[in-house]
């Protein structure tokens, strides 16, 4: 693995383009480059993973995965073309292998070793799973054993689920489970599922209602819908205790900009604004977190201690992409 330490611009900015309407902004981190919209925050809040297109100006090729350590500002290139995923709050990551859009394999990596550029960070391949748009949860942790659930899309409306155990004491994947891959939610019609951190629930797009929804995963890997959100959202993420979900939604156009959108303008219109929401699954109360006019706040997720983290793509192209950390 080739690791590259890149200088990075980290700031605690004082002027915020996004408008926080709920919660206390703890910090905002600006970075160089425009990550692909999928980014992941580690459960500790100490690391961010994301992908960058190799050349965002050209319609060709895959991206490159990156791992940012917030305390030091060091940015590393890590394996895989896209979709680098932390295994919740654990010391592991699952990274796609391959560079094209065929349904690709996944590998388990040791996060600490990745950070030290240790070439032995590769623990093993996750066998018999191919797919795109992976999502990962931790089913249980017992001493050195971490039971991990990985889901991935493998064809239209076809999702696979793989449960396996990694034993860090013996550095082995559980051979009893590695050969078994199940179809996920075969009784449902859904797309773009995201697992809860405990691997027991998923949020996604219900293709029958065309709305986002939440399902419970049964022991036989069928799924029961437990909540329809009655709206279509960006990808959902669960809190670590599975009592909340967070998502972004594109808002209504800013009417003051109506004329501008109809005329030639070389920069993105302010009409397109996305905002972050949190839904409490116990009370069913939805809280709007941002109310933007010039920024798209997107792909929110939680840390293990309940901070809300999301990415901001500012309409002003001169502004750097930022990550906001909030306490609700």
């Amino acid at each position: 693995m080739r690791a590259l330490l890149i200088s990075i611009f980290l700031t605690a900015t004082t002027a915020h383009a996004q408008t926080i309407v709920k919660g206390k902004l703890l910090k905002e981190v600006a970075i160089e480059g425009k990550p692909s919209f999928f980014f992941k925050i580690h459960g500790s809040g100490r690391f961010i993973s994301y992908s960058l297109a190799n050349d965002p100006n050209r319609p060709a090729g895959a991206g490159t995965n990156h791992l940012l350590e917030l305390a030091t500002g060091s940015l590393m290139t890590i394996p895989g073309p896209w979709d680098p995923v932390f295994v919740a709050n654990s010391n592991y990551m699952i990274l796609p292998r391959g560079t094209d859009a065929s349904y690709i394999n996944y590998e388990l990596r040791d996060l600490n070793k990745l950070l030290r550029n240790n070439p032995t960070s590769h623990i093993g391949d996750v066998p018999n799973v191919t797919g795109l748009y992976q999502s990962v949860g931790v089913l249980s942790t017992q001493g050195p054993k971490t039971k991990i659930r990985l889901i991935a899309e493998d064809g239209y409306r076809n999702h696979k689920v793989k449960d396996f155990t990694y034993n860090s004491a013996t550095n082995s994947l559980n051979v009893d489970q590695v050969g078994v891959t199940h179809k996920l939610c075969s009784n449902q019609d859904l797309k773009l599922p995201m697992l809860s951190k405990d691997g027991q629930f998923l949020g996604g797009l219900d293709l029958k209602t065309k709305k986002s929804a939440i399902w419970k995963i049964n022991p036989d890997f069928t799924c029961d819908k437990v909540l329809d959100l009655s709206l279509k959202t960006g990808k959902l993420n669960f809190s670590y205790d599975s009592t909340k979900v967070t998502y972004h939604v594109y808002g209504e156009p800013v009417e003051a900009k109506e004329d501008a959108a109809e005329n030639y303008i070389p920069i993105p219109s302010d009409s397109f604004v996305s905002d972050v929401y949190v839904l409490d699954l116990r009370t069913k109360v939805t809280t709007r977190v941002t109310s933007n006019r010039e920024t798209n706040s997107m792909y929110p997720d939680f840390t293990a201690d309940g901070q809300l983290v999301f990415i901001n793509h500012h309409h002003d192209d001169a502004r750097k992409v930022t990550f906001s950390f909030l306490r609700l």
């Binding site: 425009k34 965002p56 319609p59 060709a60 090729g61 859009a101």
Partner: peptide, 14 residues
């Protein structure tokens, strides 16, 4: 609709 920031959408454009 594609985005230069989403590699799979870039591949899909072609």
């Amino acid at each position: 609709l594609w985005s230069p920031f989403m590699p799979l959408s870039v591949i899909g454009r072609e």
